[in-house]
């Protein structure tokens, strides 16, 4: 079942078109990486889902219910972490969670336990300071706690890691990975390594549409270019191996960069067998022999250009 479904969404600010027919499906229990350049419309999309902005056209369904602009009922399924979360500086974390509880309508008993659990999860349980004294990373962690308060089926995070240092970033990613089991996570980012670290679904937003979407494995498989990277200790070895390979296999294309060869073939499986037996024939041992994997970065650049 799709927890979030967006159908041909259009949004423009004045003459500037941000979304031009966006379609998107987020399956339940996935961690969905929503990738795009700065200004590509990630935040706009999220705000429309939350009913904070009015779309020009298109529909949004959360857990099968239609979301509408304004006070949308579907927000009860959603926990939201804004890109730079701001909370009331004069409150303590637990007081803030209490206010959230009164607004979401949970009972007192449910919350005090759950509030403490969540603060423990994000590592703020022992902090008696007011929120005004928190660092960026601590606010971000409190943001996750408040977003998870009503046990949402969908957690939406807008660039949760971009403003953080490496340690803060790791903490946030660990927390997101930890909640993976209990809720579906959609998070936008332009940091691709974060996506590779915790996401199982990826979508790339470009020029108002999804330019790419699917599971990480699917995307990589569909963009896999048949080929191998072979690395030798010396340039001579590489050169002689390249000559032999070209002689044996007619349908390949070899590029050489010093001791490294990139071999591309139309029938990858067959070519791989041949290349490996060639090592025995020539009595050479390569330093490395690997299947060419497309990197997310490569794919991203390819899609965006």
């Amino acid at each position: 079942m799709n927890i979030l479904e967006i159908k041909s969404l259009y949004k423009s600010f004045g003459k500037h078109d941000v979304l031009t027919g966006l379609d998107m499906q987020v399956p339940e229990h996935s961690v969905y990486g929503f990738v795009g350049q700065n200004g590509s419309g990630k935040t706009t999309t999220m705000k429309i889902v939350l009913g904070l902005l009015r779309a020009n056209q298109g529909e949004v369904y959360v857990c099968g219910e239609k979301a509408s602009y304004g006070e949308t009922k579907t927000n009860r399924h959603i926990g939201f972490l804004p890109d730079v979360p701001e909370f009331y500086n004069f409150m303590r974390p637990m007081e803030y969670l209490s206010l959230c509880r009164e607004i979401t309508g949970l009972t007192n008993k449910q919350i005090s336990k759950r509030g403490e659990d969540l603060l423990t999860l994000v590592g703020l349980a022992d902090d008696k300071r007011k929120i005004g004294g928190f660092s960026r990373g601590m606010k971000q962690r409190l943001g996750i706690a408040q977003a998870l308060l009503n046990n949402p089926r969908l957690l939406i995070c807008d660039e949760p890691t971009s403003a953080l240092d490496p340690i803060g970033r790791k903490e946030i990613l660990d927390i997101l990975a930890a909640v993976k089991g209990r809720t579906t996570v959609v998070f936008s980012t332009h940091v691709l390594s974060d996506v590779e670290r915790i996401c199982d679904q990826v979508a790339v937003l470009h020029q108002g549409k999804l330019a790419l979407s699917g599971t990480l494995a699917e995307i990589k498989a569909s963009h896999r270019q048949g080929g191998y990277i072979i690395e030798f200790a010396t340039i001579e070895e590489a050169t002689s191996y390249a000559k032999a390979a070209l002689l044996h296999l007619k349908t390949i294309n070899v590029e050489q960069d010093k001791g490294t060869l990139i071999v591309k073939a139309s029938d990858t499986r067959h070519a791989g067998d041949q290349l490996i037996s060639l090592f025995a024939n020539l009595q050479t041992v390569p330093l490395k022999f690997e299947v060419m994997e497309p990197t997310l970065e490569g794919l991203f650049t390819e899609v965006v250009q």
Binding site: G51, L52, I78, C100, Q146
Partner: peptide, 15 residues
């Protein structure tokens, strides 16, 4: 301007 209200509104706080 600080965005403190947005968070409350997304939790379903009535305007």
């Amino acid at each position: 301007s600080r965005g403190t209200l947005i968070n409350m509104l997304t939790k379903g706080l009535s305007r």
